[in-house]
Simulated scan of single mutants.
Amino acid sequence: MRRMLQYIGHRLYTTWATFWFVMPFLVTYPLQLALSKRPQWHRYLHALNRVWSLLFIRMWGMPVEIVRKKPMPAGQPCVYVANHSSYIDIPLLFKTIPGWLNIMGKQSLAKVPLWGPIFGRVYITVDRDSAVSRGRAMVQARRTLEAGRSVVIFPEGSISKTPGVQMGEFKDGAFQLAIATGVPIVPVTMPLNHRFMPDVAGLRVRYSRLAITLHEPIPTAGLTAADAPALKQRTHDIIASAFRPEAAGIPAPSSWRRPTASPTPASPAPDPAEKAKAPNS
Rank of each mutant, 00 (worst) to 15 (best):
I118D: 04
T18E: 04
N280R: 15
M197V: 01
K171D: 08
E156Y: 10
I66A: 05
P268R: 05
L35C: 01
S150W: 04
W60A: 13
T15H: 04
V122Y: 05
R206S: 07
V79L: 03
V183R: 03
A276K: 14
P251L: 08
I97E: 07
R195C: 09
A34R: 07
A74I: 10
I118V: 14
D237E: 13
L177C: 08
E216I: 03
G120M: 05
G99T: 08
D172G: 06
P229A: 02
A240S: 12
I8E: 06
R209V: 00
P191K: 11
A266Y: 01
I103A: 13
D199M: 07
V27I: 07
S53R: 13
L177R: 10
P268D: 03
E246C: 02
S36C: 02
T125R: 08
R121N: 06
A242K: 12
M62V: 14
A211K: 11
W256S: 09
K70N: 13
A211L: 00
H215Y: 02
Y29L: 11
A226V: 00
G168H: 09
A131W: 09
G120Y: 02
R149H: 15
S254C: 01
R136F: 04
I239G: 05
S262Y: 00
P259E: 03
A174R: 01
I57P: 04
T220I: 02
G99P: 07
P265E: 04
T181M: 06
F154Y: 14
R2T: 01
G164T: 01
P219L: 06
P71E: 11
R50W: 06
V112W: 14
S150H: 07
H10M: 08
L35K: 02
F154K: 09
T189M: 09
W115C: 10
A247Y: 01
V51A: 15
V51C: 15
R68E: 14
P71W: 08
E146Q: 14
L203D: 01
T28C: 02
P98T: 08
Q233K: 12
H194V: 01
R128H: 12
F56Q: 11
I159D: 12
P77T: 03
M4D: 00
A240M: 13
F119A: 12
L45Q: 10
Y123L: 14
P265H: 05
Q6M: 09
R2K: 11
L31C: 06
N280V: 12
N280Q: 15
A178C: 06
E246G: 01
A17W: 01
R195M: 09
H10W: 07
G135W: 05
R43V: 13
I159A: 14
Q166K: 15
L145N: 06
G222W: 05
L33I: 00
R142A: 11
L26S: 00
A269K: 12
P251K: 03
K69R: 15
R136W: 02
A47W: 15
R11T: 09
I88K: 10
W52L: 11
P270S: 08
Q40N: 14
A82N: 07
W16I: 00
S53A: 15
G168C: 09
V22N: 05
D237G: 06
R244L: 13
H42M: 05
F25G: 00
P272D: 05
V67Q: 13
